[in-house]
């Protein structure tokens, strides 16, 4: 009953990744804005697996994509940065935190907090799988390539050899309204990396 286009948007890899949420760490620094704040925020119902940041950055609801750099003792602020991104159309929001090695050349870990549609959740989960262990320079190239495909209106595909499972996100590029959802995590990582360069 569903069209091939819809099937290509919602491949099993996507649906599974949206549920698996690799890298999901509720209570991440700077993820406090929350449109649901005061009602049922996700962070209050989950057990936090990372230390909360010493500086709890309070942003105005609907605030712009501002980053809050984690300052907790276990994460070296020189090697760790976060970026908060918000999609005002559907209210999706995401904070991605990246930790680099001491030389700041490779990605040691990616963690994120936020909520949104299956495409944004799957995308950031697959992004986490793909980026951990990658050199920073390569990560930047991958983000550029990803953006290029997403903006192609379905004309370009992500190379499965390079993007692995994340290549399943190619289907989003045909749906103009979903490109932002797919890009959210990637833009956050790009912004976080920029703060460390």
């Amino acid at each position: 009953m569903s069209s091939p286009e819809l099937q290509s948007l919602y491949q099993d890899i996507i649906i599974d990744a949206a549920k698996a949420r690799h890298g999901y760490q509720p209570g991440l620094a700077g993820s406090a804005i929350g449109l649901t704040a005061g009602a049922a925020s996700s962070s209050s119902t989950q057990t936090a697996t990372v230390q909360t940041a010493a500086a709890h950055t309070e942003l105005a609801a609907g605030g712009s994509a501002t980053a809050a750099v984690a300052t907790q003792s276990t994460v070296n602020a020189d090697h760790c940065a976060a970026s908060h991104q918000y999609n005002p159309t559907c209210g999706d929001e995401l904070t991605v935190q990246v930790e680099l090695d001491p030389a700041r050349e490779g990605i040691v870990s990616v963690a994120w907090d936020g909520q949104g549609c299956s495409i944004s959740q799957a995308s950031v989960s697959l992004l986490t799988d793909l980026m951990v262990g990658k050199p920073v320079a390569e990560a930047r190239t991958l983000i550029d390539e990803f953006r290029d495909v997403m903006r192609s209106r379905g004309k370009k595909e992500l190379d499965i050899e390079v993007f692995e499972d994340a290549a399943a996100l190619s289907g989003s590029s045909k749906f103009l309204a979903r490109v932002k959802c797919a890009m959210l995590g990637w833009v956050a990582l790009e912004d976080a990396l920029l703060k460390l360069s």
Partner: peptide
């Protein structure tokens, strides 16, 4: 299922609905 995904699924069958906060964030937050 996020509203955006519901809307996408319905659109695939030609059904146009509104998804999102409908310019009323406080009512949703409530």
């Amino acid at each position: 299922v996020h509203a955006h995904d519901v809307g996408q699924f319905l659109d695939d069958r030609g059904i146009a609905v509104r998804v999102g906060h409908h310019c009323a964030q406080p009512a949703h937050r409530r």
